[in-house]
């Protein structure tokens, strides 16, 4: 009797295990909530604010996807992940979408079996040193003690860079940003290295940000983007085109301020298709017609998200740089909506 029951439970669980991998979109809709993996806390990208609500650039992507799929930008469960746990969390189905400034690399895409749905921030690894050391270039760092935030591609880039330039260094691996900070400030390491956006965010939190300089060398390409599990193309499409919708909205001049007006119909067919007044793009995704309207309304278009969270008027103060629209000399280039 008992054995039979156990067997039944096992079979049921097994069946559901086999079935779940394919239809994340249905799961999310049935659950009424998107599980989104973010960092454990990096101001500007994803960090809980004073009220305990998550805020930031990556968080904005999660909210946009939730708004597009579920119609509610707050229907997101944010799962803080570390460099170590993020891939397991995604692979095991604990989260549906990982938006945790993760670098798009060949092996992650191919070997680990994930699908990067696009790039939401073009980054590169940089160095921060105290001004008093008088260092102006990374080439002068021979013999320095370098604090590295592990769990990203940083160690590898650093090893490659110093090897290539025939420099010697002493690596000090640190698990999280908050542990690295006191080590660097107390002088236990001369240099702190991580993605330059992370450096800017870290420096912004210092008591005297002016005492530290970020060196001009960017030693790696770090295209950061959200990712999903491999093999579930419907879900991947939803995430990819939500991100593209945010980027395209900025290019087309659709903002959270004027979107209601534009959504009633314009004479630009591309905007109409994007906002669902023309064509059936939403249907093709398995969503309704004004999915993109909701996604853009959630936190604004790409440019608005950027300005609000990490732009020049925030403490982090990042310039658009590579992350400007292609029309402004940047790399952001959303495929056409048709």
């Amino acid at each position: 009797m008992k054995k039979l029951a156990t067997l039944g439970v096992m079979t049921a669980a097994g069946l559901s295990a086999g079935a779940v991998s394919a239809a994340t979109l249905d799961d999310v809709m049935a659950r009424g909530q998107l599980n989104c993996g973010v960092t454990t806390g990096l101001v500007g990208f994803a960090a809980p604010n004073a009220n305990g609500e998550w805020d930031g650039f990556d968080v904005g992507v999660c909210r946009a996807v939730a708004a597009a799929v579920l119609g509610d930008p707050t229907a997101v469960e944010f799962v803080p992940t570390t460099g170590k746990t993020r891939f397991t969390a995604l692979a095991s189905g604990e989260i549906d979408l990982l938006a945790r400034n993760t670098t798009w690399t060949f092996s992650r895409d191919v070997d680990l079996g994930f699908e990067f749905v696009g790039i939401n921030y073009y980054d590169g690894q940089g160095f921060m040193v105290p001004k008093e050391l008088g260092v102006s270039s990374a080439k002068e760092l021979d013999g320095a003690t370098v604090c590295i935030q592990t769990g990203t591609t940083t160690e590898l880039n650093l090893a490659d860079y110093f090897r290539k330039n025939n420099l010697d260094y002493e690596p000090v691996p640190i698990e999280t940003n908050s542990e690295a900070q006191p080590l660097y400030l107390e002088g236990a390491c001369d240099v702190y290295t991580t993605d330059s956006s992370g450096l800017a965010a870290t420096r912004a939190a210092f008591e005297n940000p002016g005492d530290h300089v970020i060196l001009p060398e960017i030693i790696s390409k770090e295209p950061l983007g959200p990712l999903v599990r491999h093999g579930d193309n419907e879900w991947g499409d939803v995430a990819r085109w939500t991100l593209n919708a945010l980027i395209a909205a900025e290019e087309l001049g659709v903002t959270s301020a004027n979107i209601d007006e534009l959504a009633s119909g314009t004479n630009s067919p591309e905007i109409n298709r994007l906002l669902g007044t023309e064509g059936t793009l939403g249907d093709m995704l398995g969503l309704d017609a004004d999915w993109a309207v909701r996604a853009i309304k959630a936190g604004g278009n790409y440019g608005e998200l950027f300005e609000k969270n990490i732009g020049e008027n925030t403490p982090i103060g990042l310039a658009r740089g590579l992350n400007a629209q292609w029309t402004d000399g940047g790399l952001l280039y959303a495929p056409p909506f048709r």
Partner: peptide, 23 residues
């Protein structure tokens, strides 16, 4: 089934590949 769904496998080949980081 989880590994299959994620397109992963169990393999120890990574032990023979260059580590790429300094200690």
């Amino acid at each position: 089934s989880n590994l299959q769904a994620a397109g992963l496998n169990i393999s120890y080949q990574f032990l023979g590949e260059p580590a790429g980081y300094d200690i």
